[in-house]
Simulated assay, not measured.
Amino acid sequence: MKYGQFCPVAKTAEILGEKWTILIIRELLMGATRFNQIQRGLNLISPTLLSSRLDKLEDLGLVIKKKSPALKGHEYFSTKSCRDLLPIIKMMGEWGMLWTFSNVTNKDYDMELLMLYLERSVATDHLPDGETTIKFKFVDLQQNANWWIVVQDGKKDLCIKDPGKEVDVYITTDVKTMIDVWMGEASYRAAEKNGEMKIIGHKLLTQKINSWLKDSVFKGLPTASNI
């Protein structure tokens, strides 16, 4: 995409204005390094298009591609120019919360993205030593209704199949309620009181869920309907 202008806004738009590029950068800045990790946060993108976008970001100096010494394939790492986009990405999210969040529909409730965000939101340093397993059950889904997050030695593993671990916390709800709570539109306690969510497990974990399952960074931001 070329605009034929020397304006720095136009030159930036030539890089960031292509479909998926901003969201690929979002995933890189959130810590994704493997191809499948990036794709997991962008479930509608084709592998071919993702590969093409990553190659272009590498050519432009926003990404460094390295062969993984421990795993097959490559890993992708953000450069300083890519990391300098973090404040812009955050500002886009803040603008989106203010002016576009009211446009969210049921079609936008991406289950895989929600679980990816919840996995990233687990603060491992606020969990007990040893292994902790959290099970999520979504009552409004017929397929992929059960998910597990297993934390061990500071590492997190998101599972769609039963890992066979002893579950420490059970969270039963629907997708919209989980998103609303994580985004700060509702609280865990209010959702429980309204019968929209059940949280069962070790009291140490269930009573202080906000300490180890962090909210979205956009929690508390106003929306256009509130100003």
Score class of each variant (00 low, 15 high):
208 K>F: 11
214 K>C: 02
57 L>Y: 04
94 E>A: 15
74 H>N: 15
99 W>F: 11
172 T>M: 07
87 P>K: 04
41 G>H: 06
85 L>A: 05
31 G>I: 02
211 S>Y: 04
55 D>N: 13
153 D>H: 10
134 I>H: 00
153 D>I: 01
15 I>Y: 01
74 H>G: 00
36 N>V: 09
189 R>D: 11
174 D>K: 11
9 V>H: 13
24 I>H: 02
67 K>G: 04
106 N>E: 14
145 A>H: 06
93 G>K: 09
46 S>G: 13
1 M>W: 07
155 K>A: 10
18 E>H: 09
77 F>K: 12
70 A>T: 15
56 K>P: 01
13 A>W: 09
224 A>C: 08
197 M>L: 14
21 T>Y: 06
65 K>P: 03
16 L>E: 01
149 I>K: 07
226 N>R: 12
122 V>D: 00
136 F>D: 03
116 L>E: 08
205 L>E: 04
13 A>R: 13
92 M>A: 14
140 D>N: 14
202 H>P: 00
220 G>D: 07
60 L>H: 06
50 L>G: 04
175 V>F: 10
174 D>Q: 10
31 G>H: 07
138 F>W: 00
220 G>F: 08
102 S>C: 04
88 I>Y: 15
206 T>N: 07
109 Y>A: 12
49 L>D: 00
38 I>D: 05
114 L>Y: 13
177 T>Q: 07
76 Y>M: 01
211 S>C: 08
35 F>D: 08
92 M>F: 10
81 S>W: 07
185 E>C: 10
150 V>I: 10
12 T>M: 15
84 D>R: 08
115 M>I: 05
20 W>A: 02
79 T>E: 07
105 T>S: 15
17 G>L: 10
165 K>W: 00
60 L>M: 09
7 C>F: 06
6 F>C: 06
136 F>C: 03
172 T>R: 11
49 L>E: 12
186 A>K: 11
204 L>N: 13
11 K>P: 00
227 I>L: 13
28 L>S: 07
141 L>C: 08
146 N>G: 00
96 G>Q: 11
196 E>S: 09
188 Y>R: 00
5 Q>N: 08
137 K>A: 05
19 K>Q: 14
116 L>Q: 10
65 K>T: 15
130 G>D: 04
68 S>W: 02
152 Q>I: 02
180 D>A: 12
199 I>P: 01
52 S>L: 10
106 N>A: 12
214 K>T: 06
45 I>Y: 06
216 S>V: 00
